[in-house]
Nucleic acid binder design. Structure first.
Ligand SMILES: [Mn+2]
Ligand SMILES: [Mn+2]
Ligand SMILES: [Zn+2]
Ligand SMILES: [Zn+2]
Lengths: 140, 140
DNA sequence: ATAATAAATGAGAATAATTCTCAACTAGGG
DNA sequence: CCCTAGTTGAGAATTATTCTCATTTATTAT
């Protein structure tokens, strides 16, 4: 059974078409999607799907640690399917979001555990600024 | 002239009592405050202060890079006066927020600049999980 | 397959944070 | 002191998200 469905079932939740659709949408897109975007996509599979169900399901998937929400500085949240963990670079000019990974990230987190005895279970890391394309036109 | 007021003035904004109060509130508290909390405090100085002004002023101070907003997973934002930059550890159990600083943080940011040619101007870094006190009672 | 049942859903109302509107007010320059 | 552009307060408006509840459905047991 596919990842995602497995965890839902294991935790005793029903595998409804809506849940399958939301799950599949997020997993296959591989991008950061707003609730509206997800819902629009889901409606192509389940035309009667209600928006509330999308909200409920995303909450559920977050509980189960299958998705994370990210704050891109917009008024609404975005969600993404949890894969290898990474941080985000958000360009304030063009809005582009780049995923970022570094060995220092791992060191930082070990640091947190050792020095603060703090056990990290989720990360919300966004570095905001200007991407290479946009930085030039600003002042340099 | 005090920090904050200086930047406001330099940018051509008027130094109203409301702006002074909001500024002073955030600076002196040194903590993360919600808009409501700030507004309550401000009203002890300016009883007629309107909530909209608090929102407007916080936006303004953010523009001027004097405050940052942080997302503590609650439904509303929190603000803090910008000092030496740091990251946050947020305990999902007791809600405690600890500030965190590390040499790796500096390295990671240099990393971002070199490898991605990305110029960081603001950070939103929250590591969520369990603090030492709360981690014990969970499973260990 | 059928029935029983708890869980899940959809529609729309309700809530809560934030933004907007606009007439009245005021800081600050001259 | 006067002028004026900038600022404010009150409340309406907007927007994202949550809630309510009657109806439907996935799952398990018969
Ligand atoms: Mn991502
Ligand atoms: Mn802080
Ligand atoms: Zn850019
Ligand atoms: Zn704790």
């Amino acid at each position: 059974m596919k990842a995602g469905l497995r965890e839902l079932k294991r935790a005793g939740f029903k595998l409804t078409p809506q849940r399958r659709a939301i799950l599949e949408t997020l997993k296959s897109s591989g991008k950061h999607m707003s609730v509206e975007e997800i819902h629009e996509k889901v409606k192509t599979k389940c035309p009667h799907a209600g928006l509330a169900t999308t909200y409920r399901t995303l909450d559920l998937l977050k509980e189960l640690n299958l998705v994370t929400d990210i704050n891109l500085g917009e008024e609404h949240k975005h969600y993404e399917w949890k894969r290898r963990h990474h941080y985000h670079l958000v360009c304030l000019e063009c809005g582009d979001v780049v995923e970022f990974r570094s060995n220092f990230a791992i060191k930082i987190e070990k640091n947190v555990l050792k020095d603060y005895d703090f056990e990290i279970t989720d990360r919300h890391v966004e570095f905001c600024g200007y991407c290479s394309r946009c930085a030039g036109g600003r002042e340099g």
